[in-house]
Amino acid sequence: MNMMHEIVKEWLEQEKIDLFIGYKVVDGHPLPCFFTRENIDDVDNLVESKARYPLEKIAAKVYSTHPEMKIGILARDCNQRALNVLYVWNQLDPEKIETVGINCCPSPAREHADCSYLEREPSGPLKTLIGIENNLKPEQAEVYSQEERFKRWSYEFEKCIKCYGCRNICPVCFCKECSLEHSDLIKKGELPVEIPIFHLVRAVHMAGRCIDCGLCEDACPANIPLRLLYREVNQITARLFDYRAGTDSGQSPFSILGENVTLEPMSL
């Protein structure tokens, strides 16, 4: 029994939490799992798991039906950022959440990098030639000319098979109705998706919201460098509004546009 097990057991016993969301290995596969007071011995099977799932999204689901429940959650840095975003948007009550933190993160949103989620394999030669490498940093993508950039992104978007996985897995996507599915905004029933609006609409929604956990890119069957795209829009939000999703907690970016606003016009 390690320290994590001890903490979780203690919390459950002391009724600090009613359930704990973590992982457990089943047939060699780590799966998201709930640990409860009733099955407290099961906590010994709690693992950190290399495979990451949007645990906080699961927590939000629980909250929507059982708002009284106190939830413990295994939180990598990305989970913690996602939780902060969900607090901001009233999808979870911070009063009801306790986290067991794991110190790891490959995102530039945090500096240290001992995350179990490692950098992706380097891209193949064709992708380097006509697409966008997944590991590129926004500054590196900016060396492409506007036209070149558009062409390369169009190639990436062209590959999309419209699984909506990027949205479905996204821990901070919670809308009951999704703009991506508004047929008047984005044409339906066809592959490829309408380029580039499908991905740009999603990018717009990720501005000030994406916490760079990388789950979308993991889930993308077409290997589209979505993280880079959302990092770009997030940088704009940070520059224009000085708002960093997931790290600036407590306020929605809309509240920042509060009573006294002096917006200095800046070029994008």
Binding site: G28, P30, I161, C163, Y164, G165, A219, C220, P221
Partner: peptide, 28 residues
């Protein structure tokens, strides 16, 4: 995903050899 005995959602199994955490629109 089963919540209180009700089927509530689908997620890709991230470690499955066939799809390695990816799904198409139907699977999702």
């Amino acid at each position: 995903e089963v919540i209180d005995g009700k089927l509530a959602g689908t997620l890709p199994l991230k470690t499955h050899p066939n799809n390695e955490g990816k799904l198409c629109i139907k699977g999702w």
